[in-house]
Structures are given as structure tokens and as C-alpha cells.
Simulated assay, not measured.
Amino acid sequence: MTTARRNAVRQALAGCQGFRSAQDIYADLRADGSKIGLTTVYRALDALSDAGEVDVLRTDSGEAVYRACRTEEHHHHLVCRDCGRTVEVAGPAVEDWAAQVGADHGFSDITHTVEVFGTCAGCAAR
């Protein structure tokens, strides 16, 4: 079910290029006059993530950060540690590897999460 608050979170993410924390999204919404609560932001992000509308990844410090999905296809992310620039990448070798590791150990219905972090060319040049 779509709610006005979920739409507000969706719109807040639509204008972002990189990943944002729930607290950042909450602060942006509050600065724009929204009366939304932080718990509601987390619930909306969970619902949007479950629906495949939002990408979620964990930073090196373990914090969950969010970004509007740019594609409906399964993909991974290459993320700049400095500026947050994110590139969606396909990983057929990763898909094959995950399936093989699962099969080698008798597992089925394999899923995985792979994120790659580095420094983009623009940040490296600075």
C-alpha cells in the first residue's frame, strides 16, 4: 500500500545521486517542513526496499544507507568512499560463483549481496 509518507521518502531519495542514511533523509524531510518521524522513515525505507524500489547497502562502519533503484535487474554497486558516487554494475562472474559455492555445500535458493568500495577518478585526482 502506498502512503503519503512513503511517497515523501520516495521523492526525497529520487533527487539523490548517492546513498543516504535514514537520518539524512529524515533531516531533509524535516527541513522541508514535513512532520514525519524517524521511525516512519525507517518503516518507509524497509517497505520500499522490500518492493525493490530502494537499494540498501552497509557502509564500512555497518550503517545502512539507501538509494532509489535505477534498474529493476539484479545488480551490484561500485561506490566511492569519498564522494559517494555510485555505479550500478552487473556481476555475472559473482552470480556464477555464488551459485557454485552454494551447490558445492548442498545449498539451494542462493542469494547474495556484493558491494565494491573504492575511490573514483575525480576524488583520486584531488
Results as ranks from 00 to 15, higher is better:
T113S: 12
P92N: 12
A47W: 00
G37Y: 05
A124Y: 07
P92F: 10
T71R: 12
V56W: 03
G118P: 06
Q23H: 13
E88N: 06
Q23R: 11
D32M: 01
G62V: 09
C80Q: 02
S21Q: 07
S34I: 10
A12H: 05
A14C: 03
D32T: 11
V56C: 11
D46Q: 11
V9Y: 04
A124W: 04
A8S: 09
L29N: 02
G106W: 12
V54M: 08
S34C: 04
R43E: 00
G122H: 11
G84D: 01
D32S: 13
R67M: 07
C16R: 15
T40Y: 06
V87Y: 08
G33H: 11
Y66K: 04
C123V: 07
R67C: 06
L38Y: 10
A44G: 01
V54T: 10
E73S: 14
G102D: 06
R85I: 05
T2F: 03
F117H: 15
V114L: 14
G122I: 04
D82F: 07
H112Q: 04
D50H: 09
G18R: 13
L48M: 04
G102Q: 04
I36C: 01
D96Q: 15
L57Y: 14
H105P: 01
V9D: 03
T113Y: 03
V79M: 01
A121Q: 07
S21E: 10
T111R: 10
N7Q: 15
V101P: 07
E95P: 00
D104W: 10
G62C: 02
V54I: 05
V54E: 01
G118Y: 11
H112C: 05
A12S: 14
V9E: 10
A68S: 15
R43V: 03
R58W: 01
A8C: 03
V94R: 06
A98E: 03
L45H: 04
E53C: 01
V56A: 05
G118L: 06
K35M: 05
R20L: 14
K35N: 15
A99W: 07
T111A: 09
L13E: 02
R10M: 06
I36A: 01
G52T: 09
W97Q: 11
A51T: 09
F117Y: 15
C80P: 00
R43Y: 11
T59G: 11
L45R: 05
D50C: 06
E53W: 05
I25Q: 03
L13I: 02
L48C: 10
A93D: 06
R10W: 12
D24G: 06
A98H: 13
S61P: 00
G122F: 13
F107D: 05
V89F: 12
C69I: 01
R58T: 03
A121M: 08
A27C: 08
V56D: 00
H74E: 12
A22E: 10
L45E: 09
A22I: 07
R81F: 04
C69L: 00
F117C: 02
V41Q: 00
C123N: 12
C123E: 01
H77Y: 09
S49V: 06
Y66M: 12
V89S: 07
A124S: 12
R43N: 09
Y42L: 10
Y42Q: 09
I36N: 01
L45S: 05
G18H: 04
D82M: 07
L48G: 00
D50V: 08
C80H: 14
E88P: 00
C123H: 04
F117Q: 15
Q100L: 08
R58P: 01
